[in-house]
Design a protein around this nucleic acid. Structure first.
Lengths: 193, 193
DNA sequence: AAAATAAAGGACTGAATGTTCCATAATTTA
DNA sequence: TAAATTATGGAACATTCAGTCCTTTATTTT
């Protein structure tokens, strides 16, 4: 050990995450990053490797946070249907309240990078698998509790919900009317009846 | 009039469209464009203005083509449900058959540019409005023909279908299994029953 | 306190970026 | 056929890009 790092690594990752989330990998320059994090280039390269490594760290960080949050939602859940409605509603409420239309960092990265970068494709794909698993477990538990008809296919619906969420995050980039999202959510939630 | 253009403008636009569609605005350089179109820089700038103008032209061209195609589908349609199933299935069949995971040029541009570029946001938003209108008309006609229950809200379902399509185009960037898409489609089509 | 080690600042690099300019070539109109 | 006009090819431009290098500074270990 020798001289200590003068900045907080997690804070720096959070700031970089916001930049990449908002403008994409290609939309942010290294100069912009070091200006925003208020560190020097050598510090950035020393701490995080290169631009793509930094990006990857922020994406993994984002994914973890989302997975933890969604897991929590279902742990405190009394009713799956309500919880799904809450999760879907939060997406558009956040979108409408923010000035930044940054949507979902995972979706953004899927579109921008997944087809041309295997590492990013893996992160995105792993994230999707985790989400679907959480949903599937929640629906199966609800079926056990007779809150959802046993005729429903939990896997199929989980997949469909992920699709809906991805769609909503695309919409959130340019749709600023509550009604549009509520149209979708109402139709979607009905699939659990 | 004077010297004639040596290249075909429409062919050039189609080639440029493929580039942007596959790699996004920021993912394609002017050098790459002129190499691919096999024209000189001055020809490109002379014919299309600048990179963003060229991009905009290709995006509008893409949008028009999609709208014409979808319109045609419903014009030859005997049954809305079948037509929707056909449209949704085509998305994943095309995705699975192609080596390029380019998805939908409109969705890609929505994610990459709409939040930071008003002109692109308008194109994307107009495209969405047109699509929803086509769907709404088709569902209403089907209700008249008693193919769809009159209790259904055509506007709401149209909005939901657009959401589903956007979600599928996100998925198409990294999901290579038929089952996943069929899970979604089966659940979605059921909303017309 | 000295030696070792790691972080920071920032100048620097070479390549790539989007765009412009200009000389030349082709075509049309008068 | 001459003048006008547009297209082409490619050199040139300033800027920005991601990434490196080296000196200085701070901290730890011996």
């Amino acid at each position: 050990m020798a001289r200590n790092r003068e900045f907080n690594t997690d804070d720096a990752l959070d700031k970089a995450m916001l930049l990449f989330w908002n403008k994409g990998f290609n939309g942010v320059s290294t100069q912009e990053i070091i200006d925003d994090l208020n560190i020097s280039k050598s510090s950035m390269y020393g701490a995080f490797g290169d631009k793509m490594e930094l990006f990857t760290l922020t994406l993994l960080r984002y994914s973890s946070k989302i997975i933890v949050d969604i897991n929590n939602e279902f742990e405190i859940s009394q009713n799956v249907k309500m919880t799904f409605k809450k999760i879907l509603s939060q997406i558009y409420k956040e979108a409408l309240s923010k000035k930044l239309n940054n949507g979902c960092f995972i979706v953004n990265s899927t579109i921008e990078l997944a087809p041309h970068n295997k590492k990013i494709a893996k992160i995105v794909s792993d994230h999707r698998t985790k989400l679907e698993d959480i949903f599937e477990n929640a629906i199966n538990k609800a079926i056990e509790k007779k809150q959802v008809p046993a005729t429903k296919n939990a896997k199929q619906i989980s997949c469909f919900f992920c699709n809906t969420i991805n769609g909503m995050y695309v919409d959130s980039k340019y749709i600023r009317t509550k009604t549009s999202y509520e149209n979708t959510i109402n139709t979607v939630i009905a699939s659990l009846d």
